[in-house]
Simulated scan of single mutants.
Amino acid sequence: MSVLVVIPARYASTRYPGKPLVALTGATGVASTLIERSWRAAMSVQGVDRVVVATDDDRIARAAEGFGAEVVMTAPECANGTERCAEAHAVLGSGYDVVVNLQGDAPLTPPWFVEALIEAMQTAPDADIATPVLRCDGATLNGFLADRKAGRVGGTTAVFDRNRKALYFSKEVIPFIGTAYADDAAETPVFHHVGVYAYRPAALADYPSWSTGPLEQLEGLEQLRFMESGGSVLCVEVDARGRQFWELNNPQDVPRIEKMMAEMGLE
């Protein structure tokens, strides 16, 4: 199975302009940009044939080429990372069985998360797209609840059926649990959606032609377009193996991620 990993990155983020070029300091005190750390994460995945950064911004392109990444320039009109991946894949041409979208704001993504998606696409031929979900412990869930109370988006949650087919994704905490968890280590019924996607090339190519539905507009979650258009989204439960995980969504996330990198000994 031939696998292409695309890292979509744009400068003009609404919540955090210039986010891909934000410097993060690791355990050794060395600072590297968010986009470089995301590229390193992609390069560590086993079973991948090619990794590219897809952007519409010359500053990001220069930075990426500076640390050795292959860059594909895409249109500024791309509404989200999936559209940018679709354009990058079209530019590069066919020949890939799976296209992975490893978003440029998730430098802590463990390689086995992506490897699990690639394996799932091999064993679940009916899935148009696969994406990882991670069961929240009490501490993570309480962090999500605190962020929502403060008006911040701390993470996306997912619900799915017994066959792991996605039912819904939301920036709210779903399902409703009623209260915070007193035990930080407790397992909860809430699943954190990890913003990584593995697509069938045909479904990815169709995606930009589908109209944006009301749920995607309300939530601002690109994967909902697949669901609103009748596509099948497979949720793949992954194991953190003690690894902390967080996406960089807001400026307030920078010290949180740096603290996690220090605790895990990540450079």
Rank of each mutant, 00 (worst) to 15 (best):
E119I: 01
T109P: 04
Q103N: 15
G95S: 05
V98P: 00
W112Y: 15
H89V: 08
V98C: 10
F113M: 06
L117V: 08
A106I: 15
F113T: 01
D126E: 14
I118W: 00
L92C: 09
Q103P: 03
E119Y: 03
T123G: 05
Y96F: 15
P110W: 09
M121C: 12
A116L: 03
L117K: 05
M121K: 10
D128F: 06
H89T: 13
H89N: 12
Q122D: 12
I129Q: 08
I118C: 01
P111L: 03
L117T: 09
A130Q: 03
A106D: 09
L102Y: 02
L92T: 07
Y96C: 00
M121L: 15
S94K: 13
S94M: 08
D128P: 04
L92F: 09
D97F: 00
L92P: 08
N101I: 02
D105Y: 15
V99E: 02
V91T: 09
T109Y: 05
E115N: 06
A130W: 03
E115C: 06
I118P: 00
W112A: 10
D126Y: 08
A130M: 08
E119M: 01
A90R: 15
V98Y: 07
N101Y: 11
D105R: 14
D126T: 12
P125Y: 07
A130T: 12
G104S: 14
A120P: 00
G104C: 06
D97M: 00
Y96G: 01
P110A: 11
N101P: 01
S94Y: 05
T123K: 09
Q103V: 13
G104P: 02
F113H: 04
Q122G: 12
I129L: 13
I129G: 00
D128G: 11
G104I: 06
H89P: 00
N101S: 15
T109C: 15
A116R: 11
L108V: 11
Q122M: 11
A127R: 03
D126R: 11
A106Q: 13
P107K: 09
H89M: 13
A106S: 12
L117C: 07
G104W: 07
D105I: 10
S94N: 14
A90P: 04
A124E: 15
T109N: 13
G95Y: 05
F113G: 02
A120M: 00
Q103C: 14
S94D: 15
E119P: 00
V91W: 03
A130E: 05
E115M: 01
A90N: 06
A127D: 09
G104T: 07
I118R: 00
D105W: 14
D97G: 12
F113C: 03
A127K: 03
P111D: 12
I118V: 09
I129M: 13
P111G: 05
S94F: 03
H89L: 12
G95D: 05
Y96L: 01
P125S: 10
W112I: 09
V99L: 07
L108T: 11
V98K: 04
A127F: 03
D97E: 07
W112N: 11
T123A: 09
E115H: 02
G93D: 06
A130K: 04
A116W: 01
T109W: 04
P110E: 08
T123F: 02
P125W: 06
L92I: 10
I129P: 00
V99Y: 04
T109I: 15
L92V: 08
